[in-house]
Design a protein around this nucleic acid. Structure first.
Lengths: 218, 218
DNA sequence: GCGTGTGAACTGGTTCACAGCG
DNA sequence: CGCTGTGAACCAGTTCACACGC
């Protein structure tokens, strides 16, 4: 088929990739589109369509070949490109993230952490090199860092983000409560806000239960 | 207007709510739809449509009244309902989250943390009560907990989630790398996976730059 | 007979465009 | 005039439905 992949497709493919890793790890070698759909919360239909989007991809009555599919996705999404990333803000959350994300064999590598509290820097026993915030520009350029995880306090968020983008950062995962929007094309931002997520859940529950809360508007 | 709110609308409204808090905090009392849109990464159009969905809502040439809008959203989304939440898995990430999410005056309160490593429990100096994992059922029932944040290791994820749902948990924020899908209606799950997020960014960048990686298919 | 591949129909969410009102 | 409110047009993505291949 070969059309431009839509964003939902890209996201699904990333999820499928994750699933393939898991299946491969458990020694499963083939999957059906229905099984995939079940596991990533999508319909078998959409999964098949994504597969066909991946560009012609042979398969038969026993489903898809796990490792072939995995490699196909890597190829197509360019997930094998080496990417250097950094974490900005090494509070509890920032430093916790480091361990979660470093996963061996990944092409995305966290190569630096920044914080402007120098004392904190000394304390951190971390697997990555940490630097004071004033060296952001220098290090990003020097280490060719393209991605950033932002975990600074909310009030520093937009200034820091602007600064990162100024340095040439092209992708930011924003853990700050402030919603960031990309100031230019070719820069991608993904906002992850715990509090908002909780609220979304809460709202979904409230609306699901039917209780609208029209509030006897006097 | 008054139709059922779509999920994208709900999400936008939660973001708008967040923004209103911020504006209110800075003493701003009125906003235009365009300003709102800019800040939450949506079009003014959609924002206005959401407003109209909120149920009739008067406004004039100077835009929307910040605190009124805020309250309206609270009302409509039921964000004022008290919700008790728990964190399951008190590793680095789990314990980091506690601080991020507890925010005074919120109707969502984290009232318990669980981990099966008892030693760890002693060490944690946390603002919430922590319990060993075997007491999950008991405590959830007793404290009327409806939401859970899941931050256990990946291989324990689905079992733990199933257990939580069994206890009557209706909403889960899943920080595990395993994609969870809701096994029943009325249970909502939001997956947040750092590694997948990074990959999505990486894929967006690769595809954006145009380099497809068709791979000289022999 | 199952499971895939894919054009066709559908859906609902976004964007447009314009009327209304301070 | 600016900005909002909202029906109408549009469009992307999802779902359907059926043909094909093992």
């Amino acid at each position: 088929m070969q059309k431009r992949l839509s964003e939902p497709s890209i996201i699904r493919l990333c999820l499928i990739y994750r699933l393939m890793e898991e299946l491969e790890h458990h020694g499963v070698s083939r999957v059906h589109s229905s099984k995939i759909g079940e596991n990533i919360g999508a319909r078998a239909d959409s999964v098949r369509k994504d597969m066909s989007m991946l560009g012609d991809f042979g398969n038969n009555l026993s489903g898809y070949d796990v490792s072939r599919l995995k490699n196909h996705i890597i190829q197509k999404l360019g997930l094998d490109r080496d990417r250097n990333a950094c974490i900005v803000g090494l509070g509890k959350l920032g430093s916790a993230i480091i361990n979660y994300i470093q996963h061996p064999g990944s092409s995305i590598r966290i190569v630096a952490g920044f914080d402007n509290n120098l004392n904190k820097l000394e304390l951190i026993k971390s697997p990555i090199e940490v630097f004071p915030a004033y060296r952001i520009e220098e290090i990003i350029a020097h280490k060719k860092i393209g991605l950033a995880i932002l975990a600074v306090p909310g009030d520093a968020a937009s200034k820091t983000a602007a600064r990162l983008i100024e340095c040439g950062i092209l992708g930011i995962i924003n853990f700050t409560p402030v919603v960031l929007t990309s100031p230019k094309k070719h820069v991608f931002i993904r906002n992850i806000d715990l509090v908002t997520e909780m609220r979304i859940l809460s709202a979904l529950l409230s609306l699901d239960t039917g209780e609208e809360g029209d509030g006897i508007s006097s």
